[in-house]
Write a protein that binds this DNA or RNA. Structure first.
Lengths: 72, 72
DNA sequence: TAAAAACACGTAGTTTGACTTCGTGGTATA
DNA sequence: TATACCACGAAGTCAAACTACGTGTTTTTA
């Protein structure tokens, strides 16, 4: 559950920065496939990975876990 | 670095709830040794583990990554 | 001040899952 | 119709998440 929300959050942040999965993967040193897995909530990054995502997306690590409203 | 801060944060939260490592371990279904490793920053929990810690400590997951001032 | 409780820490082991590569196919857009 | 972007499956590797055991030190409390 949490990793699904986390994945959506990461995908949203990435799009808001106008980055493709490939560009993000490159920045992080991850494979594109892994980015896709994370964004779809299939896999969750490690804590070290969270730090990398946060830096690349220019937010605090805690902000990766701040989710928006589900509906509106 | 991040896992050291995370460990200190978790230890602080645990103490503020007046829990021993053993009591926290029991709540989480973890070994006492693992709690010790996490609190000392030797190991980091998985994302699923973060969720469990947050619930047991009654904070949001993001709050586990909100750190205080280093000195004062 | 002694005993008990709480914790650090070393070693060593098992198992999960974080992360990879390769390959296919779908959808949007230019 | 070409190409950029992404979902998704299968299958593998390896680090690290997590365990058990044992000893010793610090902290608490009676």
């Amino acid at each position: 559950m949490l990793q699904k929300k986390l994945g959506r959050r990461i995908a949203d942040l990435r799009r808001s920065k106008k980055l493709t999965q490939e560009q993000l993967a490159e920045k992080l040193g991850y494979s594109v496939e892994f980015i896709s897995l994370v964004e779809r909530g299939v896999n969750a990054p490690s804590v070290a990975g969270l730090e990398k995502f946060a830096k690349a997306l220019k937010v605090e690590v805690g902000d990766l876990f701040v989710f928006e409203e589900k509906k509106r």
